[in-house]
Simulated assay, not measured.
Amino acid sequence: MGTIVALLIWGAIYSQLIPFSDLLVALVAVDHDSPLGEALSFFAYDTPKVLMLLTLVVFAMGVVRSFFSAEKTRALLAGRREGAGNILAAALGIFTPFCSCSAVPMFIGFVSAGVPLGVTFSFLISAPMVNEVALGLLFGLVGWKVALTYLAFGLFVAIAAGWVIGKLHLEGWLEEWVRNLRGNVAELPQESLTAVDRIQAGLEAVRDIVGKVWPWIIMGIAAGAFIHGYVPSDLLASVMGRGAWWSVPAAIVIGIPMYSNAAGTIPVVQALLAKGAALGTVLAFMMSVIALSLPEMIILRKVLSLKLIAVFIGVVATGILAVGFLFNAFFS
């Protein structure tokens, strides 16, 4: 009953966000149609909207994720062959979002369970890039077509990149101490959670995830507000439009050194699309920020050799390039 009441309150508040944001902008006494007014309006509306959507999505998927613990995920993937294993790993990544800080322990756990290297990479690409936060916020902010497009192409990149890496047979490029763990499968604990336990898991996910990512959300919304208010549409369309062949590789290069998460990039994506940027270019930028971030590469260096990291970046970047070019050519 408490959960239902909370959802009703959430819906009532969410329905009043537009008049609330208009009131806040009016209190500042700036011209609503000026660049500053448009930027403030974007920020005042999107900040509570994104945070509320994020809280709802994280709670719901926290409950779902209670059925997909790290141990169960590892058990499902252990012994899977490449191909079907890559598909399953990428699909599981949607429901088990792990950030960069979780990459190393998850990687070690998968390796010790005997999960093939290519299957492991499919999961590690999909988990941060194609997760419930990205899909939920994309659906809420820019519509179901963009959300489904991101889902389809994100899964494609995760599956294809993992399959290619697996076919290269690069297990010898793992760090030696990681190679020594292969085959050491630990006994997995049995779990039996009640409905109350799963609701509690959703609340804990909200405290943990929203509590950690809200500063990145605010920074992303601030960047989106600046783009929305001050960046001319013609300039942005010329730089990130489908007519500029170099826009997709440039978007990937720009995205790699950035550190953000799916939730933090969505407001920027929203603002770029509103200004006329090509969808394929924007998706390529978003994917590179999430899947190829420099901080994650630094963390993965603990378990991967520099050669394997270079192969990982090259294969994933090639997949993202294909997504950007194909989408701009046929769907923009």
Rank of each mutant, 00 (worst) to 15 (best):
V119G: 02
V119Y: 11
T120C: 10
T120S: 15
F121V: 14
F121A: 03
S122W: 07
S122A: 12
S122N: 05
S122P: 09
F123T: 01
L124Y: 08
L124G: 01
L124M: 15
I125K: 04
I125Q: 03
S126W: 10
S126I: 02
A127N: 03
A127E: 00
A127D: 00
A127G: 06
P128H: 04
M129N: 00
V130K: 05
V130E: 01
V130Q: 03
N131D: 08
N131Y: 13
E132L: 09
E132M: 12
E132A: 15
E132H: 14
V133K: 08
A134I: 13
L135H: 10
L135A: 01
L135R: 10
G136Q: 07
L137V: 07
L137H: 11
L137M: 10
L137R: 12
L138T: 12
L138D: 01
L138V: 04
L138G: 06
F139M: 13
F139D: 00
F139T: 14
G140M: 10
G140Y: 14
L141G: 02
L141P: 00
V142P: 09
G143H: 13
G143F: 13
W144I: 12
W144G: 11
W144M: 11
W144L: 13
K145I: 09
V146F: 15
V146E: 04
A147I: 06
L148Q: 06
T149I: 08
Y150G: 02
L151T: 06
A152S: 11
F153K: 04
F153V: 13
F153H: 06
F153I: 07
G154R: 06
G154W: 08
G154E: 00
F156Y: 15
A158H: 12
A158W: 11
A158R: 07
A158Y: 12
A158F: 13
